[in-house]
């Protein structure tokens, strides 16, 4: 279990997170929703160990992720709006480079398989800077699942994707859900989030305003609750 305790992050004297508490079970798909500036991306960045909290901790099976961050990062995959790819390298070179960082056995085979999976095998030797946004995001999906992560973090991954790339991403998420991988998804699309998630959290002003299983209320009820929290500033 991933247990988030009193997570607080301050940027330039502004609170991005204010003592956030959250629990994520293994194999669960958690969807985080909330208005801009609610602290969603800050939370994902801290969970990915790209940022350190001012206070609080994230415990995985009782151990702080900041005690051995490199070991925790081995279990992680992150897809964000930015692709983290090198534009001057080819698609294959990018994946081979990341495979080396993750010390993946038989990297050539793994990279070939992934390029086929994301539908980029025919462009594998083209430089990433020649790719469209959708193609770059497909490659970013391949990069993120290269190490077969136990925990996949998705920070607004659908931004800028065309329909086929969106479907590809949804298919991968469903596939990972079936394989009982832990998924944390940030999205502004309530319908999409509700349909994919086992559990939903609404962030507001750096705190969790609502945390519930998707089975606890219908999509319509949830939509109403979301509007109530975001527009009127209601709390659960």
């Amino acid at each position: 279990m991933i247990k988030v305790q009193q997570l607080t992050k301050i940027y330039n004297k502004q609170f991005a997170l204010r003592g956030l508490d959250l629990e994520i079970n293994y194999g669960q798909c958690l969807c985080i929703l909330g208005p801009n500036g609610a602290g969603k991306s800050t939370f994902i960045r801290i969970l990915a160990t790209l940022s350190r909290p001012n206070r609080g901790d994230i415990l995985v099976d009782g151990t702080s992720v900041f005690a051995a961050p490199a070991a925790f990062r081995r279990k992680l995959g992150l897809i964000a709006h930015a692709t983290f790819l090198y534009p001057e390298l080819t698609a294959r070179e990018n994946l081979i480079f990341y495979a080396a960082l993750y010390q993946i056995a038989n990297p050539d085979t793994r990279v070939d398989d992934l390029l086929k999976t994301v539908g980029l095998a025919h462009r594998s030797d083209d430089r990433v800077r020649t790719f469209s946004r959708g193609m770059q995001q497909r490659l970013a999906i391949a990069r993120a699942i290269l190490n077969e992560p136990e925990i996949l973090l998705l920070d607004e991954p659908y931004t800028g994707l065309d329909q086929s790339a969106s479907q590809l991403l949804t298919d991968r998420i469903v596939e990972l859900k079936t394989a009982k991988r832990t998924i944390v998804l940030i999205t502004h699309n309530i319908q999409q989030g509700y349909q994919l998630a086992d559990k939903i959290a609404i962030f507001r002003e750096g705190r969790v305003a609502l945390e519930c299983d998707t089975g606890a209320m219908s999509e319509l009820e949830f939509q109403q609750k979301y509007n109530e929290i975001v527009t009127a500033g209601g709390k659960n």
């Binding site: 490199a70 070991a71 990062r73 692709t83 090198y86 993750y102």
Partner: peptide, 17 residues
């Protein structure tokens, strides 16, 4: 270059010291 393209985060996410 890596900060401008965002690929710095890809390296920082790697399971290495």
């Amino acid at each position: 270059h890596e900060v401008d393209t965002g690929s710095i985060h890809g390296i920082l996410l790697a399971p290495i010291d």
